[in-house]
Each structure stands twice: as structure tokens, then as C-alpha cells.
Computed example of a mutant assay.
Amino acid sequence: MTGPRPVLIVDDDPALSATLAEQLALEGEFATVEAPTLAAADAALMAEGARFDLVLLDIRLPDGDGREFCARLRRLGLRMPVIMLTGSDSESDIVSGLDAGANDYIAKPFRLNELLARMRAQLRAYDSSEDAVFKVGPYLFRPAAKQLHDPARNKRVRLTEKEAAILKFLYRAGGRPVPRNVLLNDVWGYNSNVTTHTLETHIYRLRQKIEPNPGEARLLVTEAGGYRLEPALDTQDA
């Protein structure tokens, strides 16, 4: 039910890039953007409203070195997983890539299933780390810290464990409505004592914390049979 994870593919080999994009999109697990140069990658990452959960990064690009680019991303505070893709698997190249801030390193040619497994492993680790930060309306959402931060107003909102789990699951749905029973099963697991009323109570309390006008929800919206998050909506301008 969760939405596809946005992935940036930075590689100047058009055949490889297109094949990767096609294969990663097959199961609906990932949504890809292709960048043949570091300049194009930079533009994609810095675009207004841009969100990428993972970057597949070649080392040798026409306009620079992927390792230097990765190091710059880390200096800018971008902490999403970066997996280096390269034709060289020498120890020195692997070490320099990891030292630049890459999370993993895979040599070409590679097996797609191995790449997928490594991507999933990196995303699982990232999602549960203190580094994970998601943009939700005017807030920066840190699931691990169970906290929302509105930088414009220097406002911090503390969430309960269940509130953070609800918000994270709705965010992962990519703006699509999530049925109540799906949300219940994901957040509470199978528990016969938990009803939709429990979920509705948590949604109510969450809206009290994040909506400027909880009676007219704009960020956490009720849909037929469930709920939907509008993560790109800036409630300060709504």
C-alpha cells in the first residue's frame, strides 16, 4: 500500500540508466528519475519540493567525480542512502567511495536482485535512523525522534510512538488514501482489542497537533474508508 520510493539514478550510460529505471519500476516499489551528469543530478536534488529516498551514483561522470559529489551532498546535510555504481572494484576505489559518504558500493556488471536487496537494506536502516527526515507540510518530520519541527516558526511538536507511526505510513503512501484497516494492521499489528475507534482517536489527536485549524483538516485528510496525507501542502499558506 505504501507509495513507490523515489530514487535518483546518476549514470551517463543511457542504456544502463534506462534499463535500471525500467526494472526498478516493474513492481511499483520504486519511482526513478534519471540524471546523466552531476549537474543534472544537482538540479534534480535541489528542485523545489524534491524528494529522493536513495541515490544510485556512478563514480565517473562527464562533468566530475561521483565521490566528490557524494561528499558535497553530505556537507549540505543530505543523508539519504547513496549506493556507488562503478566499473572499478579495486580496494582503493571502494575505500574512497565509502570515505566520501557512500553507504554501499557495487561493481558493474551487477545482478539486479543483489542491487535490489542492497537498496532495501539501506532504506530499512535509513528509515529507522536518526538521519531520516521527511518534509510534511511546513514541518520537518523525524520519525526516529518522534518529532516535527516547523523551522519558520521555530516550533517543535512531540509525537507519541503511534502518532509517528501513523504519519510515517501515510507519508510512505505518497499522497494516496490508506484504508483504515490497512493503517490499523501496520501500526498496531493483529490485535483484536484494537478497533477503528482507536485509530480515529489517534488521528484526532494528531490533527490537534499539526493542523492550524483541526476542524478543517488540510494536511491529514479523511478519504472514503481511510486517510490521506498531503505532505507537499504548506499549511501556513493554505
Rank of each mutant, 00 (worst) to 15 (best):
L140A: 10
A152W: 13
Q122E: 13
P151V: 15
P138E: 09
R153Y: 09
R153N: 14
L140T: 00
F134R: 15
A152V: 11
Y139H: 06
A121P: 11
L140Q: 14
D131A: 13
R142I: 06
F134S: 14
V133C: 07
M119F: 10
K135D: 12
G137Q: 02
V136I: 15
V133F: 04
F141Q: 14
D150L: 02
P138K: 10
L115K: 00
S129K: 12
F134V: 05
Q122Y: 04
A132E: 05
Q122P: 09
K146T: 05
Y126E: 13
R118S: 12
A132Y: 01
R142W: 02
F134I: 12
R118W: 08
R142Q: 15
A132V: 00
M119S: 02
P151I: 15
V133H: 08
P138A: 00
H149V: 14
P151N: 11
L116N: 01
D127I: 00
Y139D: 04
E130A: 14
M119W: 06
R142E: 06
S128W: 02
D127V: 00
Q122T: 04
A117M: 10
L148Q: 05
P138C: 07
M119A: 06
R153D: 13
Y126S: 08
E114I: 13
A152Y: 06
E114L: 12
K135F: 12
A121L: 12
S129Q: 13
Y139L: 07
M119L: 09
H149A: 07
A121W: 08
P143F: 01
E130S: 07
Y139F: 15
R120Y: 09
R142P: 01
P151M: 15
F141R: 11
R142H: 11
D127N: 01
V133Q: 11
Q122W: 03
A144E: 05
P138L: 02
R142K: 15
E130M: 04
Y139S: 07
D127Y: 01
P138M: 04
A152N: 08
R120G: 11
H149D: 08
A132R: 02
Q122N: 14
S128D: 05
L116Q: 02
A152P: 09
A125T: 12
K135R: 15
